[in-house]
Design a protein around this nucleic acid. Structure first.
Length: 121
DNA sequence: AGCGTGACGAGTA
DNA sequence: ATACTCGCCACGC
């Protein structure tokens, strides 16, 4: 086989790294797509998003969010349930009954990938 | 080989 | 706060 066509029996190296970082995110914390890409120093936010869209089901995908703190379309309730479960800092939580879903408080929830420590509250 | 699209980000109006 | 534009990289048609 001289062709480079290979079966995707396993994840691409890049995808594997992205998933690894995703699992590194401590409970109650989140990372943006751009942050993951920057943390890896490879690719961009869109590439990370693609990996999550395809293989995110194998990792805590709800810990990787958009920079604006908006929940994932289609999985908002699923993610919201996890956030409330992990006590992830949210914003506008009281307006949830207004058909207005809460957004993540990136100011507090954003994790730099430095110290999983830190207390919130 | 070009064009559009996407689980994006940041800037500007 | 929302809407639009540009830049970014990879994939599908």
């Amino acid at each position: 086989m001289s062709k480079e066509s290979e079966p995707e029996a396993e994840l691409p190296d890049y995808a594997e790294r992205v998933l690894e970082v995703t699992e590194l995110i401590p409970r109650g914390r989140v990372m943006t797509y751009g942050d993951v890409a920057e943390w890896l120093q490879e690719g961009g936010p869109r590439q990370v998003g693609r990996v999550m869209a395809l293989y995110g089901g194998a990792v805590p995908w709800w810990r990787v969010v958009r920079a604006d703190g908006a929940l994932l379309p289609g999985h908002e309730l699923r993610a919201l349930a996890h956030y409330r479960e992990e006590n992830t800092p949210l914003r506008d939580a009281s307006r949830a009954s207004d058909g207005h879903l809460p957004r993540l408080d990136m100011k507090r929830a954003r994790w730099d990938g430095r110290a999983p420590t830190e207390a919130h509250t």
